[in-house]
């Protein structure tokens, strides 16, 4: 199912959460809404689900105007950041909820729940209550619950935000795999650019209630549309009017025409790579990413004077 958002605006009190937002989500795609907090990404997701009403604008699901239809009628599955587990129900009853509401036959419900319990790897936990599960298990249960009625769109609001780093990484891969198997149109909200790049095939970058750019992970990184996207997606240094990624800078020991003098502040060893933090002669700070071999050759140490040369720079007009 495809989603079209047309000229949607929404404000809460004096706060403009969404300002004339229009996006297209292709059927079967896996899309991330990426932005800092307060950028309106969650509000947009909730409007697509029907949990909030836009002040103006329209939502089309599969080409049909769904702006006025309630969440029950939209055929969407929604996963909440804090799981929204039904605390008084077991895992099995949580997952079965949407099916029982639809009055499916008991045998069918049982079969589908068993299938989903296996899919989210909660075998052995089906008769527990949410309070007896870990955060990651609860989120997997919430996913299974949203998937049970076979929604045409799966919406996830910061689904891994409340989990620790290892569980997050595992669930990301799992979500990616799930999407490859089912091809359900999926939209998820995140403030973590790495998460967006790793999981999504299309990323909508949002800031202050507006869409800054819509692109695939690679295009977003290589050709950012503006300074906000450049600095929000990946690291970037400012060099006068130009922006340079840390790995697009070369350090040399002797100056030549296009180099800038800088002093080494700190050398950080991050395993396979080395990050060097420097201060330019005009006081600007910037960082450079090097391989270990490069760092060893340069014999970088604190206080040393080096010369930086941009290999590739981007200028926004």
């Amino acid at each position: 199912m495809s989603i079209q958002v047309r000229h949607v605006s929404k404000h809460f009190g004096n706060f403009q959460a969404l300002d004339d937002v229009s996006i297209d989500v292709a059927g079967g795609s896996l899309t991330a809404l990426l932005g800092p907090s307060g950028s309106g990404k969650s509000t947009l997701l909730r409007i697509i689900a029907g949990l909030e009403q836009p002040d103006s604008g329209e939502i089309f699901l599969s080409g049909e105007d769904a702006t006025a239809s309630p969440p029950q009628k939209r055929g969407v599955g929604f996963v909440f950041q804090h799981y929204a587990a039904f605390k008084h129900m077991t895992v099995r009853d949580n997952i079965a909820f949407g099916l029982k509401i639809r009055k499916r036959p008991a045998a069918e419900v049982r079969a589908r729940v068993d299938e989903l319990v296996a899919l989210v790897q909660l075998q052995g936990f089906a008769d527990r209550y949410p309070a007896q599960l870990s955060g990651g298990q609860r989120q997997r249960m919430a996913l299974a619950r949203a998937l049970a009625p076979e929604p045409e769109v799966l919406l996830l609001d910061e689904p891994f935000g409340a989990l620790d780093a290892r569980v997050r990484a595992e669930l990301r891969r799992w979500l990616r795999r799930l999407h490859e198997e089912t091809h359900t149109t999926t939209v998820f909200v995140t403030h973590d650019q790495e998460e967006a790049m790793e999981v999504a095939d299309s990323i909508v970058v949002m800031n202050k209630g507006r869409v800054e750019q819509v692109a695939g992970p690679r295009e977003l990184y290589d050709s950012p549309a503006n300074e906000f996207v450049m600095s929000f997606v990946g690291q970037a240094n400012r060099f006068g009017d130009a922006w340079v990624r840390p790995h697009d800078l070369e350090l040399v020991l002797e100056p030549n025409g296009s180099t800038r003098e800088a002093q080494v502040e700190r050398v950080v060893h991050l395993g396979f790579e080395v990050r060097c933090e420097l201060v330019r002669d005009d006081g600007e700070e910037f960082s450079v990413q090097l391989t270990r071999a490069q760092a060893t050759t340069l014999e970088l140490e604190r206080g040393q004077i080096v010369y930086a040369r941009p290999v590739k720079e981007t200028v926004f007009s």
Binding site: A49, L51, P71, F78, F80, H88
Partner: peptide, 25 residues
Amino acid sequence: DEQEQAAHTLGASGWQTFWRITLPS
């Protein structure tokens, strides 16, 4: 109200949500 919203997205009407989610909680 997250649990109630979750019930809505799963297709439960206001009345069903009250009886199955709100009242038990």
